[in-house]
């Protein structure tokens, strides 16, 4: 389906980017992205992908917003307390751009459900809060041959990486073991920074413009407003993507 007059106006400023134009915008419209989590990171990620015109978003969260979420989870407001986060996300995103097809999934991401939830997405964006689910998404991404954009936050700090195993290391190469779980401090602008970087990585991948953080971990120190990039090699001993896998 071609872009409507309204869409051509809506995306005008981004189509001005070198190498973008109508054809690339159409490519975005035909793309599908799976967003795991509609919280701190899932909010900016889904908002920026929606306004950029990614045609199909599959967003998944089993939880519902509470007051302690509202300093950062800008998809939701106090009137949505008690509503499922994925459903709440869909309401917000539909308002921002009705031409995007948003599917809300309200179940948990588990070994049993993950394949169906991810479906035939072109990309997975990991906006989770726990490593077991992050590892599960990592394995699913590898099995389906879909890239995954990892992001996480703590306080005013965060990190991002673009995972496309076997070409790049996988999440298990990057962090072989899960850190202990905790309720951590966070300022809303932090997932704003990291989620926006994840969205930009997604847009670059889908448009083919620019380059992704392949084989690198980008670490942001918000206290000092400083970015550092670390090289992440593939781990030949990785149980998920290494020589001795499975």
């Amino acid at each position: 389906m071609n872009l409507s007059e309204e869409e051509l106006k809506r995306y005008n400023r981004q189509m001005m980017m070198d190498g973008w134009g109508e054809e690339t915008q159409q490519k975005l419209k035909n793309s599908t992205v799976f967003i795991a989590g509609a919280g701190g990171l899932g909010s900016p990620v889904s908002i920026y992908l929606t306004v950029a015109g990614i045609g199909n978003l599959r967003i998944c969260d089993f939880d519902s917003p509470d007051w302690t979420n509202l300093n950062r989870q800008i998809l939701h407001d106090h009137t949505r307390i008690g509503t499922n986060k994925a459903e709440s996300a869909k309401i917000t995103l539909n308002r921002l751009n009705p031409s995007v097809n948003v599917e809300a999934f309200t179940g948990k991401i588990t070994e049993e459900t993950v394949d169906e939830l991810v479906g035939d997405a072109d990309l997975i964006i990991d906006c989770m809060d726990n490593f077991p689910t992050r590892y599960l998404l990592n394995e699913t991404a590898i099995r389906k041959g879909i890239p995954l954009i990892y992001g996480s936050i703590w306080g005013m700090d965060g990190m991002v990486s673009f995972i496309d195993s076997p070409e790049t290391p996988c999440l298990k190469c990057l962090f072989p073991e899960a850190p202990p779980s905790e309720t951590f401090p966070v300022v809303g602008a932090t997932p704003g920074v990291i989620g926006s970087l994840q969205a930009l990585e997604a847009i670059k991948y889908l448009t083919g413009i620019g380059s992704n953080l392949r084989g690198y971990l980008l670490v942001w120190n918000g206290m000092k407003n400083e970015f550092r990039r670390y090289r992440v090699p593939k781990d030949p001993e990785c149980p998920i993507c290494g020589n001795n896998k499975g």
Binding site: G37, G40, M128, F131
Partner: peptide, 30 residues
């Protein structure tokens, strides 16, 4: 990453910069 150098035994010299980067689970937020 020192895991791909000599891990704990990696020799660190004057002028080197060592960064400690723990995995952080956060994102969706509870």
């Amino acid at each position: 990453d020192v895991r791909f150098l000599n891990a704990e035994e990696t020799e660190v010299k004057d002028g080197d910069e060592v960064s400690i980067v723990p995995a952080i689970a956060g994102g969706r937020g509870i």
